[in-house]
Design a protein around this nucleic acid. Structure first.
Lengths: 201, 201
DNA sequence: CATTATAGTATACATGCGTTTACCTGTAAA
DNA sequence: TTTACAGGTAAACGCATGTATACTATAATG
């Protein structure tokens, strides 16, 4: 991509700012007004330059400006279905608190978000208030971080296989390890933790 | 917010899909075509209902549809501009590796993503490979996690004010603390770390 | 039963908006 | 000096677009 002149950069900045503020791009005349121009031709020339240099693409129609910020991965939307520990999980879509956009590759069949409460997994960098992306699956490998349902209550722990038994291990030594014998109907896996979002650092 | 009728939900879904695909909202007639309607009045009624129920807001002008957050928050796109520690940061848009979608409220003027390398901040739950959202600002408060430029190299540390001096503290005790006297031209802040993404847990 | 909300079709209208043509100015390169 | 280009003003054109009026049909509600 070519370099932009200062004035062209002002135009691109205004388009981005308008997009962020309003959710839709500006009209040519709004660009004129914002940059203090009295004729539409000037703004149009800038848009033509921005398109020629590959920063935007345009379609016929009003405000049909598409900003091409390099490679833009499509967003996936995941539902925030509850907190852990705390149960049960609410899958029913009417009860979902919120749908949040995440990078497209985090999406996948049945994946969902849980807000983690407590500090039992701080040793693995999972802190109070973090959102974890859960990939639903009935089983998991030794050493993976999972969401388990113990007596109907969801909890995040690291899974450890010990022969016929499995253990649910907290990464904070202040918390006890739960040992589960095979065939224990009171414990099952909700899924594996595959990614994480933190809103306040 | 009131509930939507199935048809109104179709309209909202199409608006969101068009926004995601094109970067700008559809016109009334594009909505008609997408839903197989021959008159604009129908789509208009749906938009009026969506506005009345609080799912969108509208402004005078073409395609001036703004989808309101909460239900399905719009995505913000942030550029991944490099790694820390490693410098300098590449702001020039033509060198940006990637643009990633994040929850809309994480967006904001000039915010960007950095991939964290090393384990100097594991005490704060920031691990090797994590992506941090940086809000650019020239200064920060005591105790905030910041991105600092030391001799041209970017680094993530916790800021501590000590009278006239500031300290850049790692949260892993194995790493040294850097003490900076006021007016030291070799150190400046790139911004504050406000959120975090982890792709592999 | 009357009323209200949803969901359409058909038609018309004013104008916002993108586009175009013509002309002017300054600056930098050939 | 000429040429080219960025950046701009002024005025006009025509269609896309949002909006409005009128009419119809269906279902739920009281």
């Amino acid at each position: 991509m070519d370099e932009l002149t200062p004035r062209q950069e002002e135009v691109l900045d205004f388009v981005l700012e308008k997009l962020e503020r309003s959710g839709y791009p500006p009209s040519v005349r709004e660009i004129c007004e914002a940059l203090g121009m009295s004729s539409t031709r000037g703004a149009q020339r800038h848009l033509e330059a921005l398109e020629r240099k590959g920063f935007i693409s345009r379609a016929p129609g009003a405000r049909a400006i598409q900003v091409r910020g390099g490679f833009r991965e499509a967003a996936a939307y995941l539902p925030l279905v509850g907190e852990v520990p705390a149960g049960p999980l609410r899958y029913a879509s009417e009860e979902v608190e919120e749908w949040l956009p995440v990078p497209g590759r985090w999406g996948g069949r049945g994946r969902f978000l849980l807000r983690v409460r407590g500090d039992s997994m701080v040793g693995d960098g999972i802190r109070d208030g973090d959102l974890v992306v859960v990939d639903p699956r009935p089983d998991a490998e030794d050493g993976e971080v999972v969401v388990a349902l113990v007596d109907g209550e969801a909890t995040v722990k690291r899974l450890r296989r010990r022969g016929k038994a499995v253990e649910l291990v907290a990464s904070n030594p202040a918390y006890p390890t739960l040992r589960v014998e095979r065939g224990d109907a009171e414990v099952r896996l909700a899924g594996k933790v595959v990614a994480l979002l933190r809103e306040r650092v």
